[in-house]
Design a protein around this nucleic acid. Structure first.
Ligand SMILES: [Mn+2]
Ligand SMILES: [Mn+2]
Ligand SMILES: [Zn+2]
Ligand SMILES: [Zn+2]
Lengths: 152, 152
DNA sequence: AAAAAGTTGCAAGCTGTTCTCAATACGCTA
DNA sequence: TAGCGTATTGAGAACAGCTTGCAACTTTTT
């Protein structure tokens, strides 16, 4: 009689995505994606932060692998990569309800808030069209000072 | 009889801006700003490019000084600093007729076009206001592929 | 079981930028 | 216009963030 573990379990989206591209599921890849999934959307982590969060929870994944995995997960559209300027790029879970949001960043403390705006998306589309460019993505970064940092 | 040079000439905006802050006018600073003024607005140069343009025209300014000067000129609002991602920040003459324009960047060849859009500016203002942030500046970067690069 | 192919960790390397510090230049004052 | 105090420079070391080469290791395929 087969043990419970011998039943083939449904492959996760990550696993099937990897498989159909000749790539392999590894513990490292699962850990990185799980971290983002556990933490939820709206959180913007640097590679270093991903590394130390995993390290702190006892999972050792080398920084090089973190970088490789983040790149892969972005290509696979599990994550979104942000260039908020100041101190390295950041990554967030790609949320399918808010795919096209923008960011308001406090340049003092780094606090980052999200917002959506149809006109901004339109503006990018119009600009690309007018000049005959094929649009990939547009991102609005608003640099500002948050209420807590204003009098410092 | 005084030579023509003995007449006190009007200090340039650069010079007077520097003076009132205890800073000094130097040939290096003048050269960097003149390069941008000569080249006109709408050109987005990296620090390396500024360095090699000056070097090629016989003016030797160290790269460290280029970086220091660019930072200074940004603080003095003669230049605008752009983070177009990919390969270093860029600098442009701050044009007072088009202070708030945005950029459409070809990710293949780096060609960068400018456009203006009132709604984008509004979007940044609204977002900052809603969250109680003090707005500094907002920039929309549209990543795209230009007509020349589309079939490559 | 062996071979093939993908992945990892480590360390070295790279790029863009800042910093350290001795030498130099600027601009005020006498 | 010589002298002085301070700002600035150039050269290179240092740094941050990220990528790469490679040997060891882990799947997967045959
Ligand atoms: Mn976000
Ligand atoms: Mn511009
Ligand atoms: Zn803040
Ligand atoms: Zn192009």
């Amino acid at each position: 009689m087969p043990s419970p573990n011998s039943y083939r379990t449904h492959p996760s989206p990550l696993e099937s995505g990897l498989r159909q591209d000749g790539k392999r599921m590894t513990p490292q890849r699962k850990k990185v994606l799980s971290l983002f999934e556990g933490i939820g959307s709206g959180i913007h982590l640097s590679a270093e932060e991903v590394h130390s969060k995993l390290t702190n929870s006892g999972d050792k994944v080398s920084l090089a692998t973190i970088y490789r995995t983040l790149r892969l997960l972005v290509k696979m559209t599990f994550l979104n990569e942000l260039d908020l300027s100041e101190g390295g790029n950041r990554f967030e879970l790609l949320s399918h309800d808010h795919p096209d949001h923008h960011h308001l960043i406090c340049i003092r403390c780094g606090r980052t808030e999200e917002f959506e705006n149809k006109d901004v998306i339109k503006a990018g589309e119009v600009a690309a069209k007018n000049l005959g460019f094929k649009l990939l993505e547009s991102s609005l970064n608003v640099r500002a000072i948050c209420p807590l940092c204003i009098n410092k």
